[in-house]
Design a protein around this nucleic acid. Sequence first.
DNA 1: ACCACATTTTACAACGTTGCATCTACCGCC
DNA 2: GGCGGTAGATGCAACGTTGTAAAATGTGGT
Lengths: 339, 339
Amino acid sequence: MAATLHDVARIAGVSIKTVSNVINDYPHIRPSTKQRVVEAIAELDYQPNLSARSLRSGRTGVIGLAVPELSLSYFAELADAVIRSAERHHMTVLIEQTGGDRRREIELLSSPRRQMTDGLLFSALGMDSDDSEYLRVGYPLVLLGERIFGGPTDHVTMRNVDAARAATEHLISQGRRRIAIIGAHEGEIIGSAGLRLRGYREALEAAGIPFDPALVGYTTLWHRSNGASAMRDLLASGVRFDAVFGLNDTLTLGAMRVMQEAGLRIPEDVSTIGFDDLDEAQYSLPTLSTVDPGREEIAETAVRILLERIAETNPAAPPREVLADFRVVERESTVSLTA
Amino acid sequence: MAATLHDVARIAGVSIKTVSNVINDYPHIRPSTKQRVVEAIAELDYQPNLSARSLRSGRTGVIGLAVPELSLSYFAELADAVIRSAERHHMTVLIEQTGGDRRREIELLSSPRRQMTDGLLFSALGMDSDDSEYLRVGYPLVLLGERIFGGPTDHVTMRNVDAARAATEHLISQGRRRIAIIGAHEGEIIGSAGLRLRGYREALEAAGIPFDPALVGYTTLWHRSNGASAMRDLLASGVRFDAVFGLNDTLTLGAMRVMQEAGLRIPEDVSTIGFDDLDEAQYSLPTLSTVDPGREEIAETAVRILLERIAETNPAAPPREVLADFRVVERESTVSLTA
DNA sequence: ACCACATTTTACAACGTTGCATCTACCGCC
DNA sequence: GGCGGTAGATGCAACGTTGTAAAATGTGGT
């Protein structure tokens, strides 16, 4: 079967420990010895047994990434970025899908699989701040997302409130006053929906525009179809609006499609902005203005912090919270009122 | 730190082997003993050490999935389906991205990481049939995709030619005669592009429609922007067409956007069909007719076959090729000529 | 030639688990 | 009462690696 240290040692005429030393770049090895070992390794096409190595060292070289669903573009693009980041640090990524289900999220935190990872990047969706004690786990954990703040672990996330306020301000600056919002979650305070709604309200308030509950479209999920049906409801209600802020791009694209079917022109009749800056937003008709929440930066930072924690000798360092920079991306779907 | 078999054994007052037997459902254990062990396991919150287990057993419980990029929706949806399938078999999935690069694909086949997986689902994009010898590896490997046929391994894929012919026939049955095709690859015979182009030509031929090279839009990649620019070129060339077959949905959505900008009506002026049946195709404007190539079935079958190979004692069984069923999905973007 | 000291190599024991072989106790049967 | 057989429990070795510590070898100075 596969060659082991013993085989290499036999061929090179040294002890297995010497082979191990060569592989691990131990400095004090005679060049001639090293060369013989290297040749034997090449001859046998030796590859270290990773199970044995991690049994011995307690490290696996794998980090976990838990997300709700890869078929949600935001998480697919996040996973892509995380894998590329991890690669640069010679780490592999094991992806788990939770479906956004609280129970599965909690289970996953203490699943035997945590054993095969050195640490976990955890994008919670079903859990909330009340559950934050579950995050007190015995391995390095970096939280992503906006469901839990002030928890016991490091946390890398986006500036939801600020970014949503900036998006709304962008619409206001174009002379829009009746700004519908799509994707709100009934009663939510913390969480992407709650925080972005808050940014929206702050922007309105700052501009002296009264908040009109009739302009809020609620959805449970953020799939395209939810955006579409929220918009259908909004149109059916007869409420007047001249702009839409969709709480993510996917929702917004669904809503746009319904508006266009209904004969509304975007951006002339309804200036529309989304959130996430998916690749897709560049190719819709019209192209979608949106907020880039700093996804690449989030992935990169989260991986870096997780690896720091893994390497750390003293795990008692206080939890850090990192907020990525965001950016409003103006495209065709938003334009000033020409009236 | 974490509890081991020894700890459990001490608490339960039995040998570690008995604990191991309980965990592995060895039949001959006195119920009272079993109960004591189970209680001790619960008390210590014991979880087996997976590194030790795989060192001993040679199995990891992990399968690898190599895809070009997760940010391509097709692969994100495929990965989602594979993970869900694997979950049902109590397996974990380790995802690797190759970027569709031939060299990286080849490297990955003999990477030390193969060590941490019991087998690999491999979606090749950069390699071609000339490289098929690289697939002769010492571990269970199931090939996905359409770059290599007749290779030495099991292969699960879609009926590209038939499905593309069916898509084209769908357009022809609606009275379309000038059918543009977008996303072809110069000179490719094998591969999604080459095979689907062949299906297109077969359909034309069967209908007695001459093949017009001016109607072929070439692209290197299949991102949205490639579809958009191919369509721009097509429009700039002045060639006349009354239908478009996009070789995948993403391309097609990019092309649709350019057509609409140019004032073409879909489906009236240009009946349009894609390929992949992405979630997104249900929410574009108009909704996109497309081909469902059987992605779920592919994921499920591939996982099943891989696990069979892993469990197999005699690995000499001849390679199998499985083709999933496809289905033309009619939506708003295709309609009969009303002349 | 011998010592002090640095370089190079090695032996051994673990990491936590499971396969194999073995051992004891007990059961039913002639 | 002795024997074969099965249920139930165990001890030992091994999977392939690396940390520790110590042994072997080499170098230079006296």
